[in-house]
């Protein structure tokens, strides 16, 4: 199946799930949380799966988005819909210079540099005094609109996922998308093709940050309360794990990973022993399907086009993520 249908698949499945759930409160909050995690995992999928930049700062960008809307709505009484573009754009604007700084680094060092950046953001939010509410965070963030119910919010969250998947699919089918994949695969070749590697890397990093900012915006208006550790390092790492388990290189992979891991975690027995099952399942997935669940399926059942491509380029060795 072509990846062109990705947004439609999410739309249909989310719609079916929404109808099946009806108005069960526990189910709805789980579903909304999965949608928010899907957005975070999608931002990882774009930056890491497509661009090859492993960022541990996606949670920090979500935090920036959440705080932007939190501060603007509670302190200045601006409508949540006007803060949406700011909550998406501000993380992007912050991400561009960071990307310029970290993109020359080798993959592992880059990951650590983003981790340091995320920790710095968390500490700054914590010590922001009256503006960010310090340790306690901000409370009393208004809902999106007066008649907001868990049902409508769940729909809005999944609609956001569908829109992001749609734009993501379009991006990857464009010349930009091909440039992004070339940069990941072989940056020297990308330079030879006339691609501005630094600009492409800043672009993906920035777009990923924007998606994370959207997730933060949604979460702030769902919870009506935000604190500095809401999107801490564990959340960023979780988002990476979701993307990798689902298949970071496939557009729908991160969404599948978010659904699978969230449901898996939700239904695991025991409070304290939960992490043992979670960790074990994670390692098992990585060992059995290193390129994620969807990557695994795609490799097992190659489409006609990729089969003919494969026979044409037998001698070219395959690399998952260089």
């Amino acid at each position: 199946m072509s990846e062109k249908w990705s947004p439609l698949i999410v739309l249909v499945l989310a719609g079916v799930a929404a109808i099946l759930m009806g108005s069960g409160a526990a189910w709805l909050s789980t579903s909304t949380l999965i949608a928010i995690y899907s957005l975070l995992a999608l931002s990882v999928g774009l930056t890491y799966g497509q661009g090859g930049i492993l960022s541990v700062a996606q949670g920090a960008f979500a935090s920036i988005g959440a705080y932007t809307t939190g501060i603007l709505t509670t302190r200045y009484g601006i409508s949540p819909f006007f803060t949406l573009p700011i909550a998406v754009l501000l993380p992007m604007i912050i991400a561009f210079p960071v990307a310029r700084l970290v993109s020359p680094l080798s993959p592992l060092v880059l990951a650590i540099a983003t981790l340091m950046f995320a920790t710095i953001v968390e500490i700054l939010l914590r010590s922001g005094g009256d503006l960010t509410g310090g340790f306690l965070g901000l409370s009393g963030i208004p809902p999106l609109f007066a008649a907001q119910t868990p049902v409508t919010f769940n729909l809005i969250a999944w609609l956001a996922v569908v829109v992001v998947v749609f734009l993501y699919t379009n991006l990857m089918n464009s010349a930009w998308g091909r440039a992004i994949n070339t940069v990941r695969h072989d940056s020297v070749r990308a330079v030879a093709d006339g691609t501005n590697v630094a600009r492409i890397q800043s672009l993906i990093f920035g777009l990923g940050a924007g998606i994370a900012g959207l997730a933060g915006w949604l979460y702030a208006h769902q919870l009506s309360f935000i604190s500095p550790d809401l999107f801490g390092i564990p959340v960023s790492i979780n988002a990476i794990l979701m993307a990798v388990v689902g298949g970071a290189g496939v557009i729908l992979g991160p969404v599948l990973g978010a659904v699978t891991l969230s449901l898996f975690y939700e239904f695991l027995p025991g409070q304290e022993a939960r992490g043992m099952f979670y960790g074990a399942a994670l390692i098992l997935t990585l060992v059995v399907a290193p390129s994620g669940l969807l990557g695994f399926v795609r490799r097992r059942r190659p489409s006609k086009r990729s089969q003919s491509l494969k026979s044409a380029s037998v001698l070219v060795s395959e690399k998952a993520f260089p």
Partner: peptide, 17 residues
């Protein structure tokens, strides 16, 4: 097919365990 980062992620999983 695995790269070095896959092991890093697996080691995160083991740390959680």
């Amino acid at each position: 097919r695995a790269d070095h980062l896959t092991l890093v992620l697996a080691s995160f999983g083991f740390a959680i365990f």
